[in-house]
């Protein structure tokens, strides 16, 4: 019988909200949730649905919320949803940065100023030049994303730039290379977050899926650190229910229940993505 470690939920610190479902204006070749135009496997969540989930999580003492998709700025009510949420808690939006119009940025800055809680805008960048980035995200994406980043910085929102670290170079060297490249593009205060690549969604076609050996199978209980994984402190909600984490919203076995209080049980770490998280120590959070 296969044995996998079980990750307890210590406390619900973070709730991920897949507000835009799987709808996106881009079709990135490595998207781990296979989002894109016309992709409606996960529908958008209504403002009322989000408000109910926020209330549910606040009742459990949640610290902060993350909004993702798909592309959150495709949601017609995103600004209102953020306004609802920021009244009670910090919020982060994960975006591809291509839909940041002047009026949206103005609204975001207003929300940030009016709230006691922090509003973080996190923009994904998959290469430090157009050729590298657009190879994942499509022609013209790099230019629009950099424009979005510049506008965010000019407004004082100080975006976090999420970059995928695929090479073997030293993290400090990689970070400095990112900062240098972003500086040359006119960004003076970028905040950098690096993420590993996950072999999920479209990435399984671009490269490959998880190999059998990439697994936490038979990891001895004595060797397992229950404080290493983000699923010890988070859950993700979509229009389809509650999932263990934002990475597994579209994977078999990732859905844990309908209500948050039904998902307090330990999660069996049987997915290849659990291996990536455990080995790299990564978290989808801002830290």
């Amino acid at each position: 019988m296969e044995r996998f470690p079980a990750q307890p939920l210590h406390h619900l610190d973070v709730l991920w909200i897949q507000v835009a479902g799987t709808l996106c204006n881009l079709s990135c070749t490595h998207c781990f949730v296979t989002c894109g135009p016309g992709e409606r496997r996960h529908p958008m969540m209504s403002r009322g649905e989000v408000r109910a989930r926020v209330a549910e999580a606040l009742g459990m003492g949640v610290r902060e919320f993350y909004f993702t998709g798909g592309e959150p700025f495709l949601h017609p009510d995103l600004i209102e949803i953020l306004e609802d949420t920021l009244a009670s808690a910090p919020a982060t939006v994960l975006t591809n940065g291509t839909l940041l119009t002047a009026s949206r940025i103005e609204s975001l800055r207003r929300l940030s100023d009016e709230s006691r809680s922090s509003l973080e805008i996190r923009v994904s960048l998959d290469g430090l030049d157009a050729a590298a980035h657009d190879a994942f995200r499509g022609a013209g994406a790099f230019a629009r994303t950099i424009e979005g980043l510049r506008d965010l910085e000019a407004s004082g929102l100080l975006p976090i730039v999420t970059v995928t670290h695929t090479g073997d170079d030293d993290p400090l060297v990689f970070r400095e290379r990112c900062l240098h490249a972003l500086g040359a593009l006119g960004l003076s205060r970028p905040r950098i977050k690096t993420l590993p690549m996950f072999r999920l969604g479209r990435e399984t076609t671009r490269t490959r899926g998880y190999a059998e050996i990439e697994s936490l199978r038979d990891l001895p209980e004595s060797a397992f650190d229950p404080h290493r994984l983000q699923c010890g402190s988070c859950r993700a909600v979509s229009a389809k229910g509650v999932h263990v984490c934002p990475l597994l919203v579209d994977e078999p076995g990732g859905r844990m229940g309908e209500r948050l209080d039904q998902t307090l049980t330990p999660f069996k770490l049987s997915h290849g993505a659990c291996f990536t998280c455990y080995v790299t120590g990564m978290t989808c959070g801002n830290g």
């Binding site: 406390h11 606040l58 459990m60 949640v62 610290r63 902060e64 009670s88 808690a89 910090p90 922090s118």
Partner: peptide, 19 residues
């Protein structure tokens, strides 16, 4: 653990104090 002022909801701080 970093308890930043802008990164902690009231709900979270209430939970932490109660816990």
């Amino acid at each position: 653990e970093f308890l930043w002022e802008s990164a902690c909801s009231d709900a979270f701080l209430e939970w932490m104090c109660a816990e």
